[in-house]
């Protein structure tokens, strides 16, 4: 189990890192899709089937398409998809910031004992060293998710619907050309 997790993590992180450091935008977008696949694999590993498929459907199927469209629509020649190098100072400061954040988060995670998250009935180990007992995986079948969406989270579902509609309209308004002479496809 853990080996699979490490494998997924290494794959996802490696593709994401390479994607964000490449100079060719198309390669970046495609590699990032691979990274999203890695994240979907993590969801599958954790047993969240539905979310994994939704992730692939939304990110690989839709978001990556939108990004590729944006890359192709914002260039004048083929060479434009290869962008010039960014400033080194900026990159170094960004890496330092990122590393600092990672350091803080990592230390916090490693210092925390997660034993008090054990299910009821299993008492937390005094001064636990992060050895959590094996917990039975929670299950979320499609039926559970549907019932929750329609009862507990119904309001959130409605708000998401409104948000998506507004986003769709907003995207069309933003991307549509000012003049009425040309009909532009909205991404």
């Amino acid at each position: 189990m853990t080996a699979a997790l490490v494998l997924i993590a290494v794959f996802t992180l490696a593709t994401a890192a390479v994607a964000l450091s490449l100079r060719n935008l198309i390669h970046s977008a495609l590699l990032l899709s691979a990274s999203w696949f890695g994240i979907a694999a993590f969801y599958l590993w954790a047993g969240a089937e539905f979310v994994a498929f939704a992730q692939v459907l939304v990110y690989v199927g839709a978001v990556s398409m939108v990004i590729l469209f944006a890359v192709l629509l914002t260039r004048r020649s083929r060479a434009d998809t290869v962008i010039g190098p960014d400033s080194v100072a900026r990159a170094i400061s960004a890496v330092i910031t990122g590393m600092a954040v990672f350091g803080v988060l990592g230390v916090a995670i490693l210092k925390t004992s997660f034993t008090r998250f054990s299910p009821a009935g299993v008492p937390a180990l005094p001064g636990g060293t992060g050895v959590s007992p094996v917990i039975a995986a929670p299950t979320a079948t499609v039926r559970d998710i549907g019932i929750q969406l329609m009862s507990t989270h119904a309001a959130a579902l409605l708000i998401i619907g409104i948000l998506l509609t507004v986003a769709l309209l907003g995207a069309v308004v933003l991307a549509a050309q000012d003049g009425s002479e040309s009909k532009q496809e909205s991404p």
Binding site: T12, L13, A16, A17, L20, S21, I39, D86, R90, A91, S93, A94, V95, T97, G98, M99, V101, F102, L105
Partner: peptide, 11 residues
Amino acid sequence: LFCLGLIGALA
């Protein structure tokens, strides 16, 4: 992953 995204967004 979060920090990678942060570095990418900043750099």
